[in-house]
Nucleic acid binder design. Structure first.
Lengths: 177, 177
DNA sequence: ACAGTTTCGTTCGGATCCGAACGATTTATG
DNA sequence: CATAAATCGTTCGGATCCGAACGAAACTGT
């Protein structure tokens, strides 16, 4: 991750502490406390992996096309669903509607998508890709998908499927509220 | 996720499209393209799960104590490692050093940690928790860990371990650059 | 009909977030 | 020993990010 290109490294060039070092430090600090180690490790690794992947894909795939991660996700959602209401875009993209207003503004300024008022409900706003936006997605998606394959290359197809299944279960669990 | 409390829901109260609906829409849009579906699903679910967990824990655990997710992570790193240089905090927390300057400023203003110049190198800055910060972590960590257990409750211990292992492999793969 | 409620997208304040540029300091080199 | 190169934390501009508050529009019940 070149984001940390100027970060200090240990003598042997490592960026992070090793797993053993970290777990040892954690165990020392948590000594005597009742800790669910497996749940902690699961949650921490989900977040770290998500961050690592996001930063990597932003750099290698998105930045050359002047796209942020969120901009890409919004573009993706609109590409897949086409002519979608903004509140649904926010749900699918996983961002608040307040944030979406700004992101759509940015993408609209670049001519990648368009806003228009819903014909049956003047409160709602429909979003759709412009031809320029569609062309960008047709170009960029294969590149993005290839990068997705690269970052998960160390997992077998079965591993990836199991991974996705477990993560869906977590999301479903949290949504139970 | 009360973050979407005012989001539109379908007739049966669902927030998201179902998996089948989404996959059908994706398949239609991607028809004729060569797509690595498993890699795509893996990456998408990693990111969605991370976001879902973050938002949930921010709300239920962190917000009552006026902490952001990033603030919590930084506090955690300093708690575990104690008397650590800021550049290492940035690495462990997964944020840029520029961001860390602001976050540490916020936490320092609240009296949760302290900055001091490294005795052997005036460029470096050491960070450590204040007694108030340590007290907060002692109170908050058990609550946070219990919430981690809840969000992963649908997974067995073995599932969680396999999940963490797969995610570590992804991170290691990306770090190969 | 029509006042009260709900549901839209937008706006706002404040906190992150990044990369690039910057001064200050330390290390490397001739 | 003095100059160059590398490394540190900070600052800056611009884009997200959220929750709360807002006005507009649509719905609700009477």
């Amino acid at each position: 991750m070149s984001r940390y290109a100027d970060a200090a490294r240990d003598g042997d060039g490592r960026v992070h502490h090793t797993l053993a070092e970290t777990e040892s430090a954690v165990a020392e600090r948590l000594d005597g406390m009742s800790v669910d180690v497996e749940s902690m490790a699961a949650v921490q690794n989900i977040y770290r992996a998500a961050n690592t992947i996001r930063n990597h894909l932003e750099q290698t795939v998105l930045a050359p096309h002047d796209l942020t991660w969120t901009g890409w996700v919004v573009l993706w959602v609109v590409w897949i669903w086409g002519d979608i209401e903004t509140r649904h875009v926010a749900e699918e993209a996983g961002i608040s509607k307040g944030t979406l207003t700004g992101v759509i503004g940015t993408l609209e300024k670049r001519g990648l998508l368009l806003r228009r008022t819903h014909p049956d409900d003047a409160r709602r706003v429909l979003v759709a890709l412009t031809p320029k936006g569609r062309k960008l997605m047709n170009t960029l998606f294969p590149i993005f998908n290839a990068a997705e394959a690269r970052v998960t290359a160390s997992l077998s197809t079965t591993d990836k499927t199991h991974l996705a299944t477990s993560l869906r279960a977590v999301v479903a669990e949290v949504d139970e509220f």
